[in-house]
Computed example of a mutant assay.
Amino acid sequence: MAEPRKRPARLPPRWFIRLAWKVHRALYRVTRGRRGLWPPRPGKWGTMRLTTVGRRTGQERSVILAYIHDGPNLVTLAMNGWAEPEPAWWLNLKDHPGADVTLVEGARRVRARAAEEDEHERLWALWRELDTNLDTFAARRPETEVVILEPESAPSGK
């Protein structure tokens, strides 16, 4: 018996993806943070609010991103809705790696960096478990960075 044909992975139109982001941010803002964020669960990523410093303006910029845990670190993908340019938040973090993250459990200060080689492969595999179309979507971009947000250590009381 022949295997059923798998339909190729399709993304919604770019305008729809951008609208969904705007609606998600508006929901978070209108509910004063009571809606719009959730923790990762088995087989599902969570959402966080990331606040960076704009590389050109120096002003705070906030986005809502998907993430997973890797020990104490938060891991996200710099994918820009699978469009080609790198997301502005990632460009901001490259210039100013310190950022603030808001999770359902509370806020924390983090420092961003790109995953390297073996670490990138290991973390990409974790994301692939959550989305079987990950490689298909990623092929639309030159490269998708795996971004690690490490907790900043508390300043010493000297």
Score class of each variant (00 low, 15 high):
T52N: 12
V53L: 14
V53T: 15
G54C: 01
R56W: 09
R56V: 14
T57V: 06
T57R: 10
G58V: 12
G58H: 07
Q59W: 14
E60A: 14
E60L: 15
R61D: 01
S62Y: 00
S62Q: 01
V63Q: 09
I64C: 02
I64M: 05
I64V: 10
I64P: 01
L65S: 04
L65V: 13
L65H: 05
L65C: 07
I68D: 05
H69W: 14
D70R: 08
D70Q: 06
D70I: 00
D70E: 10
P72V: 11
N73I: 08
N73H: 14
N73K: 12
N73S: 12
V75C: 00
V75A: 03
T76A: 10
T76I: 01
A78P: 09
A78Y: 02
M79K: 13
M79T: 13
N80I: 06
N80P: 01
G81Y: 10
G81Q: 08
G81A: 08
E84D: 10
E86K: 09
P87E: 07
A88F: 07
W89L: 05
W90S: 03
N92M: 06
K94G: 00
D95N: 13
P97I: 04
P97A: 05
P97E: 05
P97R: 06
G98K: 13
A99P: 04
A99C: 07
T102G: 02
L103Q: 01
V104Q: 13
G106L: 03
G106S: 02
G106D: 03
R108H: 02
R109W: 04
V110A: 02
V110K: 02
R111H: 13
R111L: 06
R111V: 15
A115C: 13
A115I: 11
A115K: 10
E116Q: 15
E117T: 14
E117Q: 15
E117V: 14
D118H: 12
D118E: 12
E119G: 09
E119H: 08
E119Q: 13
H120F: 13
H120L: 08
E121D: 15
E121M: 15
R122L: 12
L123H: 09
L123I: 01
W124F: 14
W124D: 07
